[in-house]
Design a protein around this nucleic acid. Structure first.
Lengths: 167, 167
DNA sequence: ACTGAAAGACACAGACT
DNA sequence: AGTCTGTGTCTTTCAGT
């Protein structure tokens, strides 16, 4: 899971180890990105200034990547989730980067990982329904240059979904 | 991907179809949960009041599920990601719910889906390193009652990760 | 449903311990 | 590295259209 940095090479801001208070702040922010600094400061027993400063530092050092709003998949007509395995015909550098570029432009693909095993990539794809997914599979994904094998696994139920890494 | 509702049955607040302005607001919030209502209102050409009201409604109807802060996996010592496939020995109702309960209590498991195919579940597991994962695999996951086959696929690189469903 | 105004809460910076 | 204090901005509500 090495950082596949894009063109813009970020300046590596030094990362001093996170202490207990940083982790407490992160825990609260993970659960609710819109919590006020005031509320955090009360819960971690600090005044607002150091909390503000700690958050700013974690943003700058990249510990905090994004404040995201998570929406209900079904309610925005993306109720179907499919795990899709991909292997390429050729495994040279340019073949790989062409595939990656194509994937990054497909809005149906919300996650893509390079994986160990018989396949090269694992994709998480969302669509409104089976028709929409079929259309994506046949007319978009299959058409990518150098595409080898494709295998779809359908998500029938969501048991757990969290982003809580700090606890 | 039917809603596997927990004990607390939520009162279904009516969901009037989202219009263009709702979607524009959602799009901005998805990218940055801490954007101000004022800034949204400027970008969608409305005053703050209706924007505020629309957000409140989307929260109430469950379109907006959570305002989350996403953290860098490696920087919080969760740099290893593993996709883990699980099949149970028995497939009756109580066996399934016991497994689900166990999974929900494991903080290493950040996602779990019921899937089609030869396995019953797919898990996304995070750990600090291979030692930590091995320990989890052998001493925690394998020990779950009724556990059948287990197969691990290692994530070697992250190509794409987004939560953008509305665009 | 929306606008505009207005009160109270909050973020953020500064002086200081 | 932290507390306290102040200023400007934002949220949130309400009367009016």
């Amino acid at each position: 899971m090495a950082a596949k940095d894009s063109e813009k090479e970020e300046i590596a801001v030094q990362l001093p180890a996170l202490d207990t208070k940083d982790l407490a702040i992160l825990k609260l922010l993970q659960q609710n990105a819109r919590i006020t600094v005031r509320e955090i400061s009360e819960q971690v027993h600090l005044s607002t200034t150091p909390v503000h400063e700690r958050i700013r530092r974690m943003e700058e050092t990249g510990v905090i990547k994004q404040y995201a709003t998570l929406v209900d998949h079904a309610k925005v007509k993306k109720g179907l989730m499919v795990i899709c395995y991909v292997s390429l015909k050729q495994h040279n550098r340019s073949a790989g980067s062409k595939f990656i570029k194509a994937i990054q432009e497909m809005q149906e693909v919300i996650e893509c990982y390079n994986i160990s095993g018989e396949f090269d990539f694992m994709l998480k794809v969302v669509a409104e329904n089976m028709d929409a997914y079929y259309n994506f599979h046949v007319n978009k994904l299959s058409q990518v240059e150098n595409m080898g094998h494709l295998q779809s696994v359908f998500v029938m139920g969501i048991i757990k979904q969290t982003h809580q890494l700090v606890y």
